[in-house]
């Protein structure tokens, strides 16, 4: 039961010479404005191991999306860099797929075509049958083989987000970046998708970085929770190890006394020490 935990060893146990899988190295982001510099992120250091599930949590405007944008390659850091397997990230690429909250599916294409579009552009030389197989395999993975020929307009929010996850994973990325993927879903669908995501993560052995506002979601899913201080000039405030055994079930975690300790600690961080005033 607990063997899966071996790949989530804290970084300190790794040999000093070996660079971690994904390294965010002294990352800063500054926007110059007419009134002087606006510092969004100020010196973020984070090492993520291969196959790890890391959640980033923080108030709106704390720059967590900016940080993941730089991992994805959409934006360039002002200082520092992000390295994936020691290679600095300079631009977006299919090895780092992003899933957004607002689905970003093309409404005039079917679920199948939406996924095919990406597969076809990343693997143009594969034979047609292989591409088709990849698409169907990933639609089946998220349980949507039946609605392959439906357009996004005919799908529910949860189904759309499943298609997005399938589209991202079909390109066999090394890192899956999720920007608050379940924020727009109702609580029941959200829980279903969390469970599905966890299963996919286990099966694919993929590294996941996920932004969330939901402490319970972070505790249920992740190996570590990165808690950000408030912007401007946001930093990593605290990193919380989530020790629950995998595979996890919600009921089991609710029985674990550590769940309540960690939850209260996170609440304390977000509502007390780094409370957010929305003015």
């Amino acid at each position: 039961m607990q063997t899966l935990n071996t790949r989530t060893q804290p970084q300190s146990t790794m040999p000093a010479t070996q660079e971690p899988f994904l390294l965010i190295d002294n990352l800063s982001k500054v926007y110059p404005t007419l009134n002087g510099d606006f510092v969004v992120l100020d010196g973020i250091d984070l090492a993520v191991n291969e196959g790890e599930f890391v959640c980033v949590i923080g108030h709106s405007g704390c720059g967590k999306s900016t940080m993941l944008d730089m991992v994805a390659g959409f934006r360039q850091p002002t200082e520092g860099e992000v390295r994936l397997e020691t290679v600095p990230i300079r631009e977006p690429g299919p090895d780092r797929m992003v899933v957004f909250q607002n689905y970003s599916l093309l409404p005039w294409l079917t679920a199948y075509e939406n996924i095919y579009l990406g597969v076809n552009s990343v693997f143009p030389n594969k034979p047609e049958a292989a591409k088709k197989h990849i698409v169907m395999e990933h639609l089946e993975m998220v349980g949507l083989a039946d609605v392959a020929n439906k357009k996004p307009g005919a799908l529910s929010g949860g189904m759309k987000q499943r298609v997005c996850i399938a589209r991202a994973l079909a390109l066999r990325p090394k890192v899956l970046i999720l920007d608050e993927p379940f924020g727009a879903l109702d609580p029941i669908t959200r829980e279903e998708l969390q469970e599905e995501l966890l299963k996919i993560w286990r099966d694919h052995q993929i590294t996941v970085l996920m932004i969330t506002h939901d402490i319970d979601e972070a505790l249920f899913l992740s190996d570590r929770i990165v808690m950000m201080t408030n912007g401007p000039a946001a930093k990593i405030g605290e990193i919380m190890q989530v020790p629950f055994e995998r595979p996890r079930t919600r009921a089991r975690i609710m029985e674990d006394p550590r769940f309540y300790e960690l939850r209260n600690e996170a609440l304390d961080f977000l509502y007390h020490r780094y409370a957010h005033d929305d003015t």
Partner: peptide
Amino acid sequence: MTAPLDIRPARSP
């Protein structure tokens, strides 16, 4: 998504 950062410059005369 997080709210867009308010980095608009103040209106100068």
